[in-house]
Write a protein that binds this DNA or RNA. Structure first.
Lengths: 242, 242
DNA sequence: TTTTGTTTGTGTACGTTATACGCTAACAAA
DNA sequence: TTTGTTAGCGTATAACGTACACAAACAAAA
């Protein structure tokens, strides 16, 4: 078998946001397509002299209006099935870019951002939609598979490092933090033990501000103390599989 | 900037083995090169109609004689610096394959295998060398970076899942298991607590066989009970960053 | 034959962390 | 005033991590 030539490399990003209740993914709508293939993940071909992370940040800025410093980006895996893009989709790509590629290998990224009014306004002006992840049934090409993979990566990483805070506003209640874990991991957590664990970590900083206008005891707002976390870098040996 | 064309995709594999004392990586020797660029990781261009994992398994079988079922393979990250391969190295590749690529993006894999006599015989007949990882100073192109990245992935994964057993023979002593953790993670572990932890997991099965001819109390051989591990799939919520 | 060095393997003690759950406080809305 | 809801504190107990004492088993040296 000869060495593959005339191939293209692309990036596709699963972009996650959290609205306080459920985990959402950002989907791009392609109006000319039929219902089944209408929605896809934000993505792009890689350009000359551009690394993959650079391409991903370019895609994300175009889709969300947010720049590198407001995004958490992580490379996950590569989707290299020789036929993952073929037929109409391959033609669409070749026509769009004026190239003649026979194969598109894509690198999956996932991104986390803080969903606020400005961002949702921007995305909807671009014809993109935030969809609750558990109701997403099907996407164009193999993008559903990429999204599922990203969700798996997110769940694992949320338990290994404090990425959850990338999805929350600067100030958040412990309730919001808990709901995020519950929504992403699909579990229920005891509020009292969760609160105890989070506060005892020393990474949460009480702001003194409280919720207003809620029909229950108002909760205090906290911020994530990143420098305290870094100071406590735990290089403890923990065999988490035992 | 135009879409990148004339690019190539390759796989490079960091292959790890353990000889009971130290962690080794498999390096390919290129006789015609000078000392600095002489050693590289096993790797290859991707062929037509071949996925990346398929390409990696092909490379590994060529380098070690081992097939898919005897290897543990994992994709890690992608190295996409536009200039990671240029000049002489790029010419070498183009000449070797009769192509005219301007850019080579590589996907880093790491592989684990059980180092035995048969495998070392095979690799040395292929002009490859097993080198203790901490003495590797420099490799061709960016392969040193790929190897370091792989080592990081291995260390992390060894603490998250029982991959250590992929590096040990079917029957091993607890001492060997401990030495592997010590060598890979660069730490010292209390033998008594380590033994307790491992045995209490229920994943080790005592064979009844003992070491022979050793100048100390002979240790029992154990096997890893993979099915017991799978049965105990711990989907426990553990926030390891707290 | 005895001693020495080395590693296996058992056991104990103690502090930390996880988990289950009772209870009061504070708010809006009924 | 009552009701529903969530915040936030506390307590008991089991599970786990860590430090370390010590006997047993072997080969090789004395």
């Amino acid at each position: 078998m000869p060495v593959q030539t005339n191939q293209s490399l692309s990036v596709d990003c699963a972009v996650f946001g959290f609205d306080g209740e459920s985990l959402k993914a950002l989907l791009i709508e392609r109006p000319t397509y039929n219902a089944l293939d209408r929605l896809k993940l934000p993505g792009s071909m890689i350009l000359e002299n551009e690394t993959l992370p650079e391409a991903a940040y370019r895609v994300l800025e175009e889709a969300t209006g947010l720049r590198k410093r407001d995004l958490y980006l992580k490379q996950m895996e590569i989707f290299s099935d020789p036929n993952r893009v073929s037929g109409d989709e391959l033609e669409w790509i070749n026509r769009k870019h004026g190239i003649r590629t026979v194969r598109v290998v894509t690198v999956g990224f996932y991104a986390l951002l803080k969903l606020d009014r400005r961002t949702t306004d921007y995305t909807s002006s671009k014809g993109a939609r935030w969809v609750t992840v558990d109701v997403i049934q099907r996407l164009a090409m193999d993008h559903k598979e990429i999204l599922s993979t990203a969700l798996g990566h997110l769940c694992r990483e949320m338990q290994q490092s404090p990425v959850a805070f990338e999805l929350l506003p600067k100030k958040f209640t412990i309730r919001a933090l808990q709901r995020l874990f519950e929504a992403a991991l699909g579990i229920e957590i005891d509020n009292r033990n969760f609160r105890k664990k989070m506060l005892s970590s020393g990474f949460l900083h009480a702001t003194g501000e409280k919720e207003q206008g809620v029909a229950h005891k108002p909760a205090e707002y906290y911020t994530f103390d990143r420098s305290a976390y870094r100071r406590a870098v735990k290089d403890k040996l923990r065999m988490n599989w035992v």
